[in-house]
């Protein structure tokens, strides 16, 4: 199970990184999101993989899933959302101001689409 989990994390991280290296903003944002899934899974697994553990004290007693990585990852998920939102809107702004959605800030490489 550990091996499968690790491979999944690795594949997701690799796909995320591949997208993050692309030249257009949208794939980069998607890549960052994918990368953050991988990172969150990775961080979460630092406390070990607990199957059927108690979520709350007093449930069954005994085997708890490590709560510390959970708390870290919980905030990381929310912050990750804020980061995704910020970068995607930055991408929109860049396209609005530069006329191009290339990450290197190249100007105007496409005819402007009509506005409504």
């Amino acid at each position: 199970m550990e091996a499968l989990f690790s491979i999944t994390t690795g594949v997701l991280a690799a796909c995320g990184l591949f997208l993050a290296l692309r030249g257009r903003t949208f794939p980069v944002v998607v890549g960052l999101t994918l990368l953050s899934y991988a990172v969150n899974l990775f961080l979460f697994s630092m406390g070990g993989l607990t199957t059927g553990g108690a979520a709350v004290i007093g449930d069954k007693g005994g085997d708890y899933a490590d709560p510390l990585p959970q708390a870290l990852v919980l905030t990381a998920i929310v912050i990750g959302f804020a980061m995704t939102a910020f970068s995607v809107i930055l991408a929109m702004r860049a396209r609005g101001d530069l006329g191009s959605d290339h990450v290197n800030g190249n100007r105007l490489d496409e005819p402007r689409e009509e506005r409504t």
Partner: peptide
């Protein structure tokens, strides 16, 4: 290739950690 290398490293690191005993400070919180 870069992505594959990166994924490989993440996977290896993850596997290495998961198969090693863990000393956590979480017992204090519990």
């Amino acid at each position: 290739l870069l992505a594959a290398g990166f994924g490989g490293i993440v996977a290896s690191l993850n596997f290495a950690v998961l198969t090693r005993p863990l000393e956590s400070i979480s017992q204090f919180f519990i």
